[in-house]
């Protein structure tokens, strides 16, 4: 918070009016909302498919992409999209064990992960005087989002969500029950590739708000929280989007009125939601869960 500026009034409407009187904050809210919706929905499938490690690796690949783009004098957004999609393609091309299902991707993913991070570090070392930007690449930034950036985020999100809507049901089938889905003629392998490309796009978008290392704040936390609360797919997806938007908006507000960085604020709000969901379930069913005599078969 800049000294001399008013603190929060604790009236949400007045505070939002204050925040939205600044064009850079309006763009931050627009970009944050677009990213929260896309990352939430793609993240929901990622959590269901147990592909969080792949998501993390794709995000880490975005770091050398953005750093390398800066080094070459190109906008980081091209680096994010180029490297995230390329990393997703590499993971998609990895051979998968026949019965491995959707457990953790192989050690190759981890190898790519470490190398990507090292490359990003090299690019930063080569680009002298870039050090202030490292934090933004790794942990997020919401300043300086232009109208064009928002339009680019929106265009990518609309395309990605249209693809997700088209493949949604077979993707859910292939995620829950790959063997039966394959027997029913669902192209499980092709869907896995399509999903990884969608994941690459969602991660590249989220990286621009939360930074490379905190994408899970919007990718995993809302979905994990929603899946804790309900097992109904449609309700769970809607709840994921809602939680993602609330976390982003609250995080932006807190970041504006406090000295703390945006990545920390969004992540903390999302984490608080996750803890609350656990507490709510524990409270509803009692701790520990009682075993019914003869109830289990």
């Amino acid at each position: 918070m800049v000294p001399g500026e008013p603190g929060p009034s604790w009236n949400p409407i007045i505070d939002l009016q204050l925040l939205w009187s600044f064009p850079f904050m309006v763009n931050a809210f627009r970009a944050g909302t677009i990213v929260a919706v896309l990352a939430g929905l793609i993240g929901w499938f990622m959590v269901l498919r147990r592909q969080s490690f792949a998501g993390h690796t794709v995000a880490v690949a975005g770091f050398p992409g953005a750093a390398g783009a800066t080094l070459l004098g190109v906008a980081p957004v091209f680096g994010y999209f180029g490297f995230c999609l390329a990393a997703a393609a590499v993971i998609a091309a990895l051979p998968r064990g026949r019965d491995a299902g959707y457990r953790e991707e192989s050690a190759v993913t981890g190898t790519v992960n470490a190398f990507a991070l090292a490359c990003g570090y090299l690019f930063i070392a080569l680009y002298k005087g870039f050090l202030g930007g490292v934090n933004a690449l790794l942990f997020g930034n919401f300043l300086g989002i232009t109208d064009d950036d928002v339009l680019a985020l929106l265009a990518v999100a609309v395309v990605a969500l249209a693809v997700l809507a088209a493949v949604g049901r077979p993707l859910l089938f292939a995620s829950v029950d790959p063997d039966v889905a394959a027997a029913r003629g669902v192209p499980v392998r092709a869907l896995s590739v399509v999903f990884l490309m969608l994941l690459g796009a969602a991660v590249a978008e989220a990286s621009q708000i939360t930074g490379t290392l905190l994408v899970f704040a919007l990718l995993v936390m809302p979905a994990a929280t929603a899946q804790r609360l309900t097992a109904r797919p449609v309700a769970s997806l809607a709840l994921t989007v809602l939680i993602g938007i609330v976390a982003t908006w609250l995080g932006l507000g807190i970041a504006y009125f406090s000295p703390y960085p945006i990545g920390f604020c969004v992540t903390t709000v999302a984490f608080a939601g996750y803890l609350l969901a656990h507490a709510a379930r524990a409270g509803r069913f009692g701790l520990p869960r009682p075993r019914l005599a003869g109830g289990a078969t």
Binding site: L48, R169, D179, A231, R232
Partner: peptide, 28 residues
């Protein structure tokens, strides 16, 4: 042949049955 569903899979039984009915349809 299968090992059974992951204990943390948060999808209802009725949804799994429903996927058998129209889970291979494209679009929403």
């Amino acid at each position: 042949q299968r090992r059974g569903f992951d204990a943390t899979l948060r999808i209802r039984g009725v949804d799994v049955v429903r996927l058998g009915l129209d889970g291979d349809r494209w679009g929403i």
